[in-house]
């Protein structure tokens, strides 16, 4: 049982570390690549959570499609580095520092709130019949759920995708 904890720490550390480097990195290309590493680590964690389908979706859609889009834009714009020059007049570094402080506060707040939730969850886990891994892993169950209970949401999402597609084409088109 200790191995899954060990694996969680390994992949969790990779995900957290890579995400931090994404945010701090100066080269957008490296940021994009590190984010893919973070996604892959999260996919490994999903497998540990009895969610192989989620793990595969994470890789196919996030790493395989969305990140390629980012990569394309970074390659096409060819803006290798962020300007380290001073921000334009009217923008002081105060708000930027405030962002850092805010993030630290957010961590503290989230950890506090989630620890309470986790205590409830673990109590549930030890009291209840426990989740059946086979039922959780089943793609069939997921599909049934998606196309019955959540069918309206599913249809709305498809409209969202079409709107986004048309919108992206209109926005990125060169005016002739």
């Amino acid at each position: 049982m200790a191995t899954d904890l060990l694996l969680f720490y390994l992949f969790g550390a990779i995900a957290a570390g890579a995400s931090l480097l994404v945010v701090l990195g100066r080269n957008p290309m490296h940021s994009v690549l590190l984010l893919i590493v973070s996604f892959a680590a999260l996919a490994a964690i999903y497998i540990g959570l009895e969610a192989p389908f989620a793990a595969v979706v994470q890789i196919i859609i996030y790493a395989g499609a969305i990140m390629v889009l980012f990569l394309f834009v970074v390659m096409l714009l060819n803006a290798h580095r962020e300007d380290d020059a001073a921000p334009p007049a009217g923008v002081t570094s105060g708000p930027l520092r405030a962002g850092g402080v805010l993030a630290v506060l957010l961590v503290a707040e989230l950890v506090w709130a989630l620890r309470r939730a986790a205590r409830g969850g673990d109590a549930l886990l030890s009291a209840g019949p426990g989740a059946d891994p086979a039922a959780l892993q089943s793609v069939r169950a997921l599909g049934n759920r998606l196309f019955t209970e959540h069918s309206l949401a599913f249809e709305v999402t498809s409209i969202l995708i079409i709107v986004a597609m048309v919108g992206a084409v209109v926005l990125a088109r060169r005016e002739s």
């Binding site: 969790g12 995900a15 964690i45 959570l49 993030a103 989230l110 950890v111 969850g121 673990d122």
Partner: peptide, 15 residues
């Protein structure tokens, strides 16, 4: 435990 996942999630969100 669930708490571990939630803390990782919090760290990522804050990042």
């Amino acid at each position: 435990p669930l708490g571990h996942y939630l803390i990782l999630s919090a760290v990522l969100f804050a990042t």
